[in-house]
């Protein structure tokens, strides 16, 4: 893999997540009735960071959960996963404004699966999507409500997201890859 461009460093990422946190509060007129669900695995620490920001800005803690979409994928036959991550949503999503968080938005298939998974848990009032990077190439009519960075890419590039919680550093790098990332 060849690094092509450094997209976000640690302080960039910090600012981007703070901005998104403010946008969420602005659009939802505060944090009442909000819950945040991170998609396994890098959406989970991002969800926690947004929750921490909201607590700092508004003084109250919103509930967070994590979601694994393995059982909802549409390509089960081709890529069965043995390392199924934990789904842990310790609250009722019914009538909540659900903030769904993922690191990279690409084809949209993971988000399609996540929407099904969340709706199986109950009927939220809204589901709003946060992504750190939108790299294009959608295969389904899905868009994000809050985007950290719009990054036009070619299909043979990959977006490498690292987070200090999972990878010991905060960075987003565009790399030349062998095949479709994610």
């Amino acid at each position: 893999m060849i690094e092509k461009a450094y997209i976000l460093n640690e302080s960039d990422m910090d600012r981007v997540i703070k901005r998104i946190s403010h946008e969420i509060l602005e659009r939802n007129k505060g944090s009442e009735n909000l819950v945040i669900i991170g998609l396994q695995k890098r959406g989970v620490p991002l969800a926690h960071r947004i929750a921490a920001n909201i607590e700092q800005f508004e003084g109250n803690r919103v509930q967070t959960g994590k979601l694994d979409i393995t059982f909802y994928r549409d390509d089960y036959d081709r890529r069965i996963k043995s390392d199924i991550q934990k789904t842990d949503i310790p609250f009722d999503v019914r009538d909540k404004n659900v903030i769904l968080v993922d690191d990279v938005l690409f084809t949209g298939r993971s988000i399609r699966a996540a929407l099904d998974a969340i709706i199986d848990l109950g009927r939220p009032r809204t589901i709003q999507l946060v992504v750190l990077v939108d790299r294009g190439h959608r295969e389904l009519p899905i868009r994000a409500d809050y985007v950290g960075k719009n990054l036009p890419t070619s299909r043979n590039e990959q977006v490498s997201v690292k987070l200090r919680e999972t990878d010991a550093e905060d960075s987003v790098i565009l790399v030349e890859g062998m095949e479709d990332a994610k």
Partner: peptide
Amino acid sequence: DISRREIKKVPT
């Protein structure tokens, strides 16, 4: 976990 939910079904 799925068996403990209200909708005890996944489309896998």
